[in-house]
Design a protein around this nucleic acid. Structure first.
Lengths: 342, 342
DNA sequence: TGGAGCCTTGTAACCGGTTACTCCATTCAA
DNA sequence: TTGAATGGAGTAACCGGTTACAAGGCTCCA
């Protein structure tokens, strides 16, 4: 493993000169620079980024701390982040809290000295705890987390209004007995979506206590909900699942029970995962540009790294868009909407 | 930003003692350790991992260099890697070559001094070039790349036999005029799959020059192939797409043209993306456990980091498994297979 | 009481770069 | 010819930790 010292010796110059030549700092004569570059080639020298970032106090890396790396949702976020980071020649250091609150502290601490800034998505962490973990000196942007009290910039999805809009749309299509399949209890997204649903049901539908079935965002829990619905003979003309994944499970469950969608019952989801438009009938949902969650956050972080001081006031709220497809359409529409056909 | 020096001063000890106390090195008396820990708490000290890794010559990080971060395929790989890395308390540094051969060199070089080992997936890079870029002193495992000549361990999918098996299955179901939709020309996976197809057609089907349509692994190119097939009136009783993505596009295209699957024509893919089993009819395909690609590679790398010397002989070949679903089934089977039903 | 041996702690070098500061050799104007 | 200005190159401190080695204090035994 060759070091700058080796290169300097080989070229017959000092380490300072070698460093300057390699970094193109100008105050080096052409012959000297040539000699250094020749030594670099000969010894196959590659600068040690670790050492460099120690003195420069810059790592050209951002830490990304996500609750999990599972599924399309997170890969889309990472893709969005990478898209922007790559343009600025920044690297991504992945930290994973694997769902454990305790590991979050460790993950954040491990980033010290390795990154210039942090993108953190702490779905079910209390703001006070988070404040304890974070280093105020390290530029940080939160993902999908409203941290108003911490005065940190964040990027979030307007889950509340998204759910409200979808419920409104279902009501507009004539549904009256809409059942909601909720997400995990402690999950903010899930709670906001549920709130949007109940509020819309109350204000527009005039239903004060709509039916809500438990779920955990998994396909399986969607299928489970279908069973509850059918066997429990819960009256329903539409089901609004808190995410697409559950809607997929739900539809499969309903099909098994011989219920037709949207004939007997309409179904709607949330997220617009790629699968949504390939189902048959295709799934109506609220489209969230997940990658933008990542790229927007990364852009905010870049501004902070450039010296700007950003706070909660710079938060960006992404509004999901209603995508009406087959599962909420009339009979005719259902058969032509996307995907394969029998 | 507090340093170890600050902690030492606060606790009234030397930096060496502070360091030993913090790292639990034993030869520190209980009162001294307590004093140091109190100072750590008081000053909110978090060790600077960058500096630490410089002296330790260990970063507890592995570099992951992928051609792109797009899509399920890569997110699954990363998830597999993370699963194993997390157990060993290793971090993941993402480098992205964004498809450009030139950037590959830069991405690898940037890893020097930041990682203890490398996982690289260089789909269309010549071995000689790759050898130039890689640092022989840095433990490296290749993903989905047979680098026999470089004597590096690698993990790959047996694309050839996978394609052979699928073709065999289609022939067994009575297909005679099977058309293959190929992947990108320079892509190794694509070429191996095509070879498996043509060999099976020759050896089992007795067809020496089967029809092959161009594709690029995208859904769009699958739809394009459907158009060529239908409008060009190419005789075909089955289509074997080089990946599921194209199969999805193909099926949509065939549906548009009024062809029924599998009634008029059978369809098969490769990869078993999650979408595959949700299509209606569900897609027959070769299942590849993509996450295992990542986790297996990471396990090999860990062994190298522990001091073992591994080479091409330690390569692991993952064999894909045939998943027969609706798109290659008889009429009856097609209607009950997974997904929703009209 | 003196010395061997053990344990705790401190001093300082080191990891591999960057860069402030200094020195020295030109060049050019007076 | 002399002195100032210019700029190329070297010395050494520094980033923030770790750790080899040395030093000092203690116990224990002869």
């Amino acid at each position: 493993m060759t070091t700058l010292r080796d290169v300097a010796r080989e070229a017959g110059v000092s380490v300072a000169t070698a460093s300057r030549a390699i970094n193109g700092l100008g105050n080096v004569t052409a012959p000297t620079r040539a000699a250094v570059m020749a030594a670099v080639k000969k010894l196959n020298f590659v600068p040690h980024s670790g050492a460099r970032s120690l003195t420069r106090r810059k790592t050209d890396t951002v830490g990304v701390i996500l609750p999990d790396l599972f599924g399309e949702f997170f890969s889309e976020i990472i893709r969005g982040i990478d898209l922007v980071a790559h343009e600025s020649e920044m690297h991504l250091l992945l930290g994973n809290m694997h769902g454990s609150t305790h590991e979050t502290a460790a993950a954040i601490a491990a980033m010290r000295g390795r990154v210039d800034g942090l993108l953190v998505m702490p779905p079910d962490l209390k703001p006070e705890l988070l404040a304890d973990y974070l280093d105020p000196a390290l530029p940080t942007v939160l993902l999908n987390y409203d941290a108003g009290s911490l005065d940190l910039p964040f990027v979030a999805v307007d889950n509340y209004h998204g759910a409200y809009t979808m419920t409104e749309a279902l009501l507009a299509r004539g549904a009256r007995q809409i059942v909601h399949i909720a997400g995990p209890k402690h999950n903010r997204d899930a709670r906001d979506r549920q709130r949007g649903f109940t509020d819309a049901m109350a204000k527009i539908g005039g239903v004060l206590t709509p039916a809500i079935l438990p779920g955990d965002f998994s396909e399986k829990s969607g299928a489970q909900a279908a069973r509850l619905l059918v066997q429990g003979q819960l009256p329903a003309d539409a089901v609004f699942a808190a995410n697409d994944q559950m809607a997929v499970g739900l539809i499969a469950g309903l099909a098994e029970a011989g219920k037709s969608v949207p004939g007997d019952i309409m179904v709607a989801g949330f997220d617009d995962i790629p699968l949504a438009r390939h189902l048959n009938p295709s799934l109506s949902t609220m489209q969230v540009h997940i990658d933008r969650l990542g790229s927007t956050a990364m852009m905010l972080l870049l501004r902070m790294l450039r010296g700007e001081t950003l706070g909660a006031a710079n938060a960006t709220i992404l509004t999901p868009e209603l995508i009406a497809r087959g599962t909420t359409a009339g009979e005719a529409a259902a058969t032509v909407a996307g995907g394969a056909r029998l």
